[in-house]
Design a protein around this nucleic acid. Structure first.
Length: 332
DNA sequence: AAAACTATCAACCGCTCCGGG
DNA sequence: ACCCGGAGCGGTTGATAGTTT
């Protein structure tokens, strides 16, 4: 991997930035950090702790901008960083969290102790993305032979423009099926149409969205919730999304877990939910499942999720529930 | 052996958000 | 209300190590 190299290090020395607080123009270095610089920053941080990064850069005797110091500390020097390859469990968790959170790398990293967002981002872009792409190719081959037609064609990207390709095993579908509330039959659509929309081969709907999940507090037991990590596969039942809604809500992870359904206008406290997820995920990392968290335990009722409420009409429900009869995966 | 290709990842860039003046 | 600076984030780049041809 890239190692500190003299010519490279010299390159950045021509950049002249004015150090904040207007003391005097000072050359700031760019490029790779030398071991000496690392030592300076490390020693300073251990002695003085966090503060204004611009001050840290200056006080530590570094010819670096504060931004560069911050990045170096967060991504490399922090003592609590875990080194080495991602474990299969961590990989599963990253995939899992990405399906829920999207490219919010810092939020994903916050749930992986000792890992940085940059590390996870790099890992995703280099390794997982390719893996999913390969899987997608396989899936599209299968889907063609299964007469999936143009349903798979538009699944090349999700609404954020990133690559899809999350797979669900039959087992996953069964678990998900168990989590579908029978009361949906009385909602604006039939339970059969919802079921069918959950059963796209690649785990996405015809628009490339991840499948919606129906919140059912009573049926989603710890079996469904913990099975994902234990299986070690891609995709699967997402226990985290269950934590976002209320009973009978439909949640679409691709839309930021926004809620549609009878509680569409309900809003939740983002930080509270965040804390609960972190708690839940930590249990997974420690090899302990605490089962699904009760929805009311997370969101309560009447809390506010700042500006994140989602109305049913804002989603393409027509498209969402279209073509259900042409999906051959599982017959209900 | 060497050129070409691929994978990895450190670090930069530009942007948004937020708090203080 | 507006401006400014710092912090933080996500996208991207590019150097280098490793692998394949």
């Amino acid at each position: 991997m890239r190692k500190p190299d003299q010519s490279e290090r010299e390159k950045g020395c021509n950049n002249i930035n004015v150090v904040s607080k207007g003391i005097m123009p000072m050359k700031t270095r760019k490029g790779l950090w030398s071991p000496e610089e690392d030592e300076k920053l490390m020693n300073y941080m251990l002695r003085n702790g966090h503060g204004c990064w611009t001050d840290i850069a200056r006080n530590a005797g570094l010819q670096r901008c504060g931004k560069s110091c911050r990045l170096r500390w967060i991504n490399y020097l922090r003592p609590d960083l875990k080194r080495g390859a991602f474990s299969p469990q961590e990989q599963d968790l990253i995939i899992h969290l990405h399906s829920v959170l999207g490219n919010r790398w810092s939020q994903i990293a916050a749930r992986l102790p000792g890992r940085t967002y940059n590390e996870i981002k790099n890992f995703w872009n280099s390794t997982i993305k390719k893996r999913l792409k390969t899987n997608k190719t396989d899936a599209s081959t299968i889907s063609q032979t299964d007469s999936m037609g143009d349903l798979s064609a538009d699944a090349s990207r999700d609404i954020t423009g990133s690559e899809p390709g999350m797979f669900m095993s039959i087992h996953d579908h069964e678990i998900m099926n168990n989590c579908i509330d029978s009361s949906l039959t009385s909602s604006t659509t039939t339970s059969s149409s919802v079921h069918n929309n959950l059963m796209f081969m690649n785990g996405h709907d015809q628009f490339g969205h991840l499948p919606p999940l129906v919140v059912d507090q009573t049926n989603c037991d710890s079996n469904g919730g913990s099975s994902f990590l234990e299986q070690g596969g891609y995709g699967g039942v997402l226990d985290v999304p269950y934590m976002f809604g209320m009973e009978n809500d439909i949640i679409n992870p691709a839309l930021g877990n926004r809620v549609i359904g009878e509680n569409a206008n309900a809003t939740f406290d983002h930080h509270e939910v965040d804390n609960k997820i972190t708690h839940h995920v930590n249990h997974h990392l420690n090899g302990v499942s605490d089962g699904n968290i009760k929805v009311e335990e997370v969101v309560g009722f009447g809390n506010n999720w700042a500006g994140e409420s989602f109305r049913i009409g804002e989603w393409d429900m027509e498209g969402f529930f279209a073509n259900v009869s042409s999906i051959p995966y599982i017959d209900f």
